[in-house]
Amino acid sequence: MNLEEAMEILDVVQGEDKAKIRKKYRSLMRRHHPDALGSDRPEQIRRVQQMNEAYHLLMKQEVPILRSARKRRKWEWTGTVNADAFCERNVYMHYSMDVEGEPLYYQAARGKYMWDPEEEEFSLFLISLRHAAKELLEQVERRQGTFREEDTLQSDHCFQVQAKLFHLLTRQFIDPLAALRKAAKPKMIDSEGRAVYQFRAWVGAEGSGEAFRATGELKKGAPIYPKAFQGHRILVKNREGKVLGHLSFDEDCLYFCLIPLLKEKCAKVRMHVRDVKENRRGWPHKAKVDVDFYFRLEQEPPKDRTGDLNEEIRELLLAYETKLMQR
């Protein structure tokens, strides 16, 4: 494959930098990957292989680019804003080429921007929220005179508060439905106009306990049922009600898109076993169940609850400040 062919496959035009090439590649993969289409016909697999080959070829090239991306004007970032969010956050971007001695990412913007799957890497979005939570705690610590530059997380309690803040902030800066519609394409639209998505998921178990035995008894095509929500995860069971474990997705963003919609009763799911694999050679024994996860949207989610979340954040920070005052 030559450069001209690679550019045609990924619809890349002359002069585009590596960030744009990466964005186009990921957008095409979301639309054409066999997992997204629910089909593994040879021509589809070949198309994905060509896209991978084209992407790796183009990313090796010297593309004209700003070497120090941090010089970009921060106000050039465009995106949906949650004006009522509790705080601002940094928006980070990967450098489009290796810059020796520089961090792996730079701050492209700061504001109350919602996460956009087409513009912002999810891993960097999570880093952004961890930093935002840390900043909020540092503000409290500075007021109480307990802030230490070299070690902000002074205790297990501080770490626990930061974790709670992080999850509250995810709910302020992720619109589950909007993010889902950008991150994935429906497998089909049913006769009633409802979007049906298909995702690959899996459940793992190890040892010799009930969960391991239950997963080993599953057969291809067998149904799996949700049992309960535990934080941002779904506990699943078999037909007989035996607990299998927590459902896992290959893409972390799906936890923050799918589960909030399920909790709000805006969607329904159907799960079937795709394959069961066991490894009994070492200890502990391990089992993995590949699952076809079907997700059907039933209705729009309720109105924004930013005000309620802001109150929860205020109460959490006040409790943290009170804890510091008692030391």
Results as ranks from 00 to 15, higher is better:
Pro64Leu: 12
Phe86Gln: 01
Glu43Asp: 14
Asn82Ala: 09
Trp77Arg: 02
Glu53Asn: 05
Gln49Trp: 11
Pro64Cys: 12
Ala85Thr: 02
Trp75Glu: 08
Ala69Cys: 12
Gly79Pro: 03
Phe86Leu: 03
Leu57Pro: 01
Phe86Thr: 01
Arg47Asp: 08
Ile65Gln: 15
Tyr105Met: 05
His94Cys: 04
His94Ala: 06
Arg47Met: 11
Met93Cys: 13
Arg46Pro: 00
Met93Tyr: 14
Thr78Trp: 05
Val99Trp: 00
Leu58Thr: 00
Ala85Cys: 06
Ser68Trp: 09
Ala83Gly: 00
Arg73His: 04
Asp84Trp: 02
Arg72Val: 15
Gln49Pro: 01
Leu66Glu: 13
Ile65Ser: 12
Ile65His: 13
Gln61Ile: 05
Glu100Asn: 07
Ala85Lys: 00
Glu102Arg: 13
Leu104Val: 11
His94Trp: 12
Met51Gly: 02
Tyr92Glu: 04
Tyr55Ile: 02
Glu62Phe: 01
Ala54Val: 04
Asp98Ser: 10
Asp84Val: 02
Glu62Lys: 14
Tyr95Pro: 06
Asp40Cys: 01
Tyr95His: 14
Tyr55Gln: 00
Pro42Ser: 14
Asp40Thr: 07
Arg72Asp: 03
Thr80Ser: 10
Glu102Tyr: 13
Arg41Met: 08
Glu53Asp: 14
Ala85Phe: 01
Arg72Glu: 10
Asn52Ala: 03
Trp75Ala: 04
Gln44Gly: 04
Lys71Met: 14
Arg70Tyr: 13
Trp75Thr: 08
Glu43Phe: 04
Ser96Val: 06
Tyr105Asp: 07
Trp77Val: 01
Arg72Ala: 15
Glu43Asn: 09
His56Ser: 07
Asp84Arg: 05
Thr78Tyr: 08
Arg89Tyr: 03
Cys87Thr: 15
Ala85Arg: 00
Pro103Gly: 05
Leu57His: 06
Arg67Lys: 09
Ser96Tyr: 03
Asp40Arg: 07
Arg73Gly: 04
Phe86Cys: 03
Pro64Asn: 11
Leu66Ile: 15
Val63Tyr: 03
Lys60Gly: 10
Leu66Val: 15
Gln61Thr: 13
Asn82Phe: 08
Gln44Ser: 12
Arg41Asp: 13
Leu58Gln: 03
Asn52Asp: 14
Asp98Met: 10
Asn90Leu: 01
Glu53His: 01
Leu66Cys: 12
Asp84Leu: 09
Ile65Lys: 05
Thr80Ile: 12
His94Thr: 07
Asp40Tyr: 11
His94Gln: 10
Met97Lys: 12
Ile45Pro: 00
Arg41Ala: 13
Pro103Met: 06
Gly79Val: 06
Tyr105Asn: 08
Gln50Thr: 01
Val99Thr: 05
Asn90Phe: 04
His94Ser: 11
Val99Met: 07
His56Phe: 12
Lys74Ile: 09
Leu104Gly: 14
Val81Asn: 01
Arg89Glu: 03
